[in-house]
Design a protein around this nucleic acid. Sequence first.
DNA 1: TCACCATATAAACATATGTTGATGTATTTA
DNA 2: TAAATACATCAACATATGTTTATATGGTGA
Lengths: 99, 99
Amino acid sequence: MPSVNSIFKALGDPVRVRIVEMLSLNGEMCVCKIMEELSMTQPAVSHHLATLKKAGLVYPRKEGQWIHYSLCKDVVADVAIAFLERIAKKPCECCCKGG
Amino acid sequence: MPSVNSIFKALGDPVRVRIVEMLSLNGEMCVCKIMEELSMTQPAVSHHLATLKKAGLVYPRKEGQWIHYSLCKDVVADVAIAFLERIAKKPCECCCKGG
DNA sequence: TCACCATATAAACATATGTTGATGTATTTA
DNA sequence: TAAATACATCAACATATGTTTATATGGTGA
C-alpha cells in the first residue's frame, strides 16, 4: 500500500495536481493527450507520471502504441482521505456525533 | 484561503506529517516540546513549522516566552479533504447515492 | 540592567527535484 | 525491412528544499 508521505509528495506539485484533476474528469488519458493539454515536453510528462505511479496514484494500461493512465481513486480515498480525516477529526468526533 | 498545492507540498515531508499527527492528538504544542518529541534541532523544527504555517495548516498562539502551535483542522477538511473527495469521486456519485 | 530561556531568522551547504535534449525500445504501417 | 509513432530512460543543468551553525529578538527573573 502506498505511503501517505509519498502520496502527498506526489501531489505537492502543480503539474501533477493538474494531471490527477484531468484523469479524474476524463477517466483515462494517453501520455500524448496529457502533453497536449499541459503544453509540456514528453519527458517532463513521463517523469511526472512516473512519480504519480510510484506513489500509487495512477496506473498504466497498454494498448498498442499507447499507454493510457488512470487515477487510482481507491488509493486517494483509502490512504489520503483516510489519513486527513483522522487528522482533522475534532476531539468529540471519536465517540459521539454532532458534538 | 490556502492553496491545495501548498498544503500537499507541506504534507510531503515525513517530519511535517509527524508534526501534524502530534498536533492532532495533543491539541497544542510549544516548539520546544515538538523538538523534544522529534529529537531535532530548534531551527529545523521552526523551519518546518514555518512551512506548515505558510500553508495555513497550523497557527501560533503566543503565551509568555512560549509559542503554542495548533493544527487548523478546518483547513485540512475544507481544502485538502474537499479537493481529494472531488478527485476520488466515482462517476455515479455526482448524481446518485449508493449507485 | 544582566543573564537566561524560547523562538525566529540568516548564511552555508548538501541533497532532492523539475526541465530539457538526446537516445533507446516497442508497436504500427508502408 | 525501413520509417514513423508513442513512450521510457538517461545525462546534464538550474532551482528548490532540509539541515546545521551562528546570530538576532523578545520575554522572564534576579
